[in-house]
Amino acid sequence: MTPETALKPSTSRALNGVHGVHLMPHSPFSFQEIKQGDFNLSCYGAFNFRGDPRLNVQKVWQQRPACLRPINCCLNGDRSLAERVVNVLTSLPFIFLGINAPRKNLSCKLYANSLIGVGVASSLYHASRGKLKKYLRWADYTMIATATVCLSRALRNENPKLLMAASALCLPVQPLMVSAVHTGLMEVAFAKRAFQDPDLRMAHNVHKMSSLLGAALFIADDTFPETPFLHAGWHLAAAVGVGTCNKLLE
């Protein structure tokens, strides 16, 4: 039986005279059939009469807050073969920096290996195409965030355990936020060390200039996606900044 045939004309006339009964000319609920396998489910409006827990969980998951959603990856780069090649080539310095980074303890080794991971993830992202590129972009951002966490731990072993645990939990879904927090901790540690050690002041000045240039290029790359080679310039500026950070671990 369907909603259209549920109330026949004779039944409607009979009910129309009953006190307290008011028949609507049109039902406020829409009718829709959803086929699942060999069964036809009748759904009225937005109500789920079956009470399928899987559908309820899926609805809740789709309405989760933005803080629990992965980053919305920008896929504007690599518009030409030349830009793709340049972006891959400018990702390789991070592998070189990771290989030559100090490895005097476990924290330093983890940071050095994470730098190699940054170069590999960035190279794979820029060399990829299609749907795979979206997932590799997420891996690229996540690997960058991992490197900042490892550097923060290598510079300051006294970091609160709660901060490190929260960073590990947020890493897969909010890598940019994790990168910002631990980059800030690194900048504070670098400034303090440079103030105490005159030999680090030159490296710190180069680091500040490269960081400002890298931030400007990062914003410009997102603001002017049609402009080629901005992302490659950000790679080079970031590589210079990372190279100066290695001075802190020597």
Rank of each mutant, 00 (worst) to 15 (best):
P53G: 05
F39D: 04
Y125I: 00
A189K: 12
N100G: 13
Y135E: 07
V181G: 15
S167T: 09
H231S: 02
Q62E: 14
V60R: 13
R137G: 07
S107L: 12
L185V: 13
Y44R: 01
R103Y: 07
R54F: 03
V60G: 10
D221C: 11
F31G: 03
R50I: 04
S80G: 12
L124N: 01
V178I: 10
L230C: 02
N159V: 15
H182G: 08
W234H: 13
V181M: 14
V188H: 10
L163Y: 05
R79T: 08
H26Y: 09
D197K: 01
V149I: 14
H19A: 13
K104A: 08
L185W: 05
R64E: 00
F190E: 09
E4A: 15
L236Y: 02
A238W: 02
K134N: 03
Q62S: 08
L75Y: 03
N40D: 07
G17M: 07
R103M: 08
A139V: 05
N76H: 14
H22P: 10
E158M: 07
C170H: 08
G51K: 07
R13Q: 12
S123D: 04
F47G: 09
V57E: 02
N100F: 07
L7F: 14
R156T: 01
R64W: 11
V18F: 12
M202P: 00
S123L: 02
W61P: 05
L132G: 06
V60I: 08
M186Y: 09
P28N: 10
A216M: 13
E187Y: 06
F224D: 03
G20E: 07
H235W: 00
P70T: 06
S80P: 09
G184I: 03
H231A: 03
I95S: 00
N72D: 15
L163V: 03
K104R: 13
G77R: 00
H231V: 01
I219S: 02
I116V: 11
P3K: 02
V88Q: 00
H19S: 14
C43L: 11
V188F: 10
K35C: 08
Q62M: 06
V86S: 10
G51C: 04
F29W: 06
